[in-house]
Amino acid sequence: MIDASPFMLAQASFGWDYILTQLFNGLVRGGFYALLALGLSIIFGMLRIVNFAHGTMYMLGAFVAYYGAQLIHLPFFAALIVAPVAVGAFGLLVETTLLRRLYDVDPLYNLLLTFALVLVIEDLMRLLAGPLGSPYETPAVLSGATNLGFTLYPTYQLFVIVVCIAVCAIVYLIIERTALGARIRAATEKPELTRAFGINTRRLISGVFAFGVALAAFAGVLNAPSTNVSPTMGDAIIINTFAIVVIGGMGSILGSIVTGFALGIIATIGAVYYPPISNTLIFIVMVLVILFRPAGLFGTAERTT
């Protein structure tokens, strides 16, 4: 064993360009957090369930892209559309055949049901694709690096930042500015009242669930060129996402987006200054938030489940 500390301290002085670059890295990480937290939050807002299988849907998205490329040479940009649609359709099936049966009982049962789904789907994918990674290449047009003035930055990572921000903004606008969004918002913020108005149709619920998991699948495709596409790729990120929605306030759309990006940046910068804290930083922030603001940063009031 060697003492690793001299290596850590070697980075003690950072130039502003280095920090700025890390900020971009934080945005990449935060973009994925935001996309996943957004989907999880919308689903929670509408269905009052926590989708444990959200990371699994993220994984499935990446695999749809992989199989698309292998079997029918589906290009990356097409996969960005096809995979969310396919996984969304799968989500629709899950909602209508399984989750729907449990709306009348404690929401914890749906959490547990989605946990069972994680076990089954991950293992099925392992049997299908093997436990190791499956290859997925960065699209040629986005490979290489771009000169940002202060640094050379991978073009693909820039693309990820732009797309994540754009998608989050679009989803936010749909929910805040359209009639459909108004219904979803109403159902999210005042579920009982909305139900009383008769708006809360089954179709809206199914649609929202499908849309939420489609967002996760989209994130999966987006990360496929940068990460190991394997059946367990959703395991680590789902627990981080849970913490982020708790910090942001469950069901808060803006909260999920802002917290996602903010925590991505905080975790990345934190790792630069003190690497061992990187994994735990998000959870520590979560503990602090619960202590001082139990409903979350953007949560309005304690909602009993």
């Binding site: 290596f7 990449v28 640094t151 050379l152 930055y153 994994n279």
Partner: peptide
């Protein structure tokens, strides 16, 4: 010799900051 070694945390999936530093 190693001019630098980044001790990357467990379960970290984003290596871009380390790779960038390596390149520079």
């Amino acid at each position: 010799s190693f001019i630098h070694a980044d001790m990357v945390p467990v379960a970290n999936a984003d290596f871009s900051s380390y790779l960038l530093a390596a390149k520079n």
